[in-house]
Design a protein around this nucleic acid. Structure first.
Lengths: 190, 190, 190, 190
DNA sequence: CCATAACCGAGACGGTACGTCATGTCTTCCA
DNA sequence: TGGAAGACATGACGTACCGTCTCGGTTATGG
């Protein structure tokens, strides 16, 4: 097993940057370890030494890119407005090619790689979800939300956007974001 | 371009069956055109002649397998109970390895292949969605549902399960199905 | 197993020519299958499909180059003069870089590859040896040579040159050729 | 350049022993510097510091193994018998796998590495050849041998065995040794 | 009698080549 | 002519070594 204290940090960064950029440029299907190594000016073995799979490289690339990204969700006191703002921002990001392609690549890979999915959940999904739950918890305390399971609440609010993005099953508009929030909060019953 | 009237139907079926079975056995990553051809006892060219991509083969395999599957959703008059039954059935299917792996393969492929996603939407998603909307429309007519956009309603009810399946972000239990239906119908507000 | 009736003859020739030329240019140590394939404008698999080893390619390259080369050794009636002429010609060839390097490569490979050595013996050495023996046989019939085992006679006459070439254990001059022939014929005893 | 006074003798011996043993076990083709270093429990750099090439290591391994081996060839007064005994011993050694493989490796390497061949000639071949010439010289003095160039005599006597070993062009039997000696001494002419 | 310079083990690094596998195209031969 | 068979050029796979390099640690003088 490799001795990580001897690891060359600049190679690591070059690999992750190359991977992220290449996925955006040529797409996941054409992404190859050889391509990443060549672009990063690195031997293939240096990739194989430190990552078990292409997906793992991509995941670390994501981690690096989103490093120190978020802190917490906005809280203006108006829950509905805050959620709409966040969902609109998410949609804007998903419509940006620079994020869309790499995210599709990562999600696609997670689809068959359970281990990668687990790591993703732990390192990226859980922190994000905690932020979301924190905002909802404040709403519960303020009496603006019923005392449901917060994980479920997060699922109900964010899933429709995720699915529409993944499957391209409809247009990803800001109106969609707004209506989803309204419906999730109010429910479908009259 | 090939003349489909001369097409050998038994080769077509052998290819689709082989593709579906192989995805279940060895997973999508290791699935190859050569493997499908060998398993189907068919020349590679016969695959390349009739399908533009591996994803397209997989998709047709799906179509064949789900041929004449559904008609309509149950309607006992109790909307909540009916939706719970349907979602529980969906979950049961998603937990069955024989469906899980091929579905993951197809969804993963759709993630980067917009054309495939379009075809999927048209041939599989829209019909399914129409069934769901038909059931909801009856509920609206019965005054059990407010007069929201039915596509949105379908999204809100079915997306949480889809996302949890795709990302393995939590356990896919029947309780989850039930709670999602209850919450979607009632809303999050107190 | 490959079907040799479908074999592409022009690829075969390109590979053998490339192998022979490359060995002369860059030497055996730096000769690689990839290099041969690239130079020949051929896929690596096409080499691996038809030859079991680098040595086998080299050997076939030799066969092609020396195709239809010899018929028989000169016979002027003067055995000693004829043998000297043949050995001098051999030495001239061995001093020519274009033959020296590839021959060294082949001989070196034969050194550890018994199978290759067997093939070489059968296809190149035996025919050559038969030519030599034919000339010696005529000398025996003419009473110019004692009735020894002809294989042994060939060994005694040709080996000293071979060893000196292989091991560079001394200068490969025409004088050497002459003296070897004289000594072999006359013997070492006074 | 390295200071040989500080050289670690035990590492040197471990490397040479490992090299010699490995060549016997896995053959020259699969012999690697990494393998030698690992087997010897030594860093790769320690090999690169002291030897310019794999062949040089192998050569030193030979030197170490054959250290203090010979003194002189037997002299019973009967030249023919003595030469037969020596050649039979040589053949026995060449048929011993423990010597055959490493020797083939070394000879093969010398074939393309002129520098190595020069060193070999100087350090191993010349001493051996001197021993042989010394014995022949005594025979000349005793009037048992004509006054030919002794190097030539050595070539004529020993080369046939060497070539037959290298090229596997025939069986390496004791009869062969005997007949070669008889023929070389007596000559081919009736 | 320590300081300092070397050797040493270990092993990461940028590379090259390996031998295998799959791609998508093309050709041959059969029904 | 559609289809089974499979050779072909291409290119990525993951592995093995190459020869260089840097890292601590350990001798082993020489000031």
């Amino acid at each position: 097993m490799p001795d990580s204290s001897r690891r060359n940090e600049s190679s690591r960064r070059a690999i992750l940057t190359a991977a992220f950029d290449l996925v955006g440029e040529i797409g996941y299907a054409k992404l190859s370890i050889e391509g990443i190594a060549a672009r990063a000016g690195v031997g293939k073995q240096t990739i194989y030494r430190w990552w078990p799979s292409k997906g793992a490289v991509l995941f670390d690339a994501f981690l690096m890119m989103s490093e120190g990204e978020a802190g917490e969700l906005p809280d203006t006191g108006d829950l509905e407005a805050d959620l709409k703002a966040v969902l609109r921002a998410t949609i804007a990001e998903l419509r940006d090619e620079r994020y869309d392609l790499p995210m599709r690549a990562l999600n696609s890979e997670m689809m068959h790689d359970a281990e990668l999915a687990r790591t993703y959940a732990e390192r990226l999904d859980v922190p994000m979800r905690e932020m979301k739950k924190a905002r909802l918890r404040k709403a519960v305390e303020a009496g603006q939300l019923s005392d449901v399971d917060l994980d479920l609440a997060v699922d109900v609010i964010w899933s429709p956007v995720t699915v529409r993005w993944m499957n391209r099953s409809g247009p990803l508009t800001e109106e969609f974001a707004d209506t989803v929030v309204e419906t999730a909060l109010a429910g479908l019953r009259p």
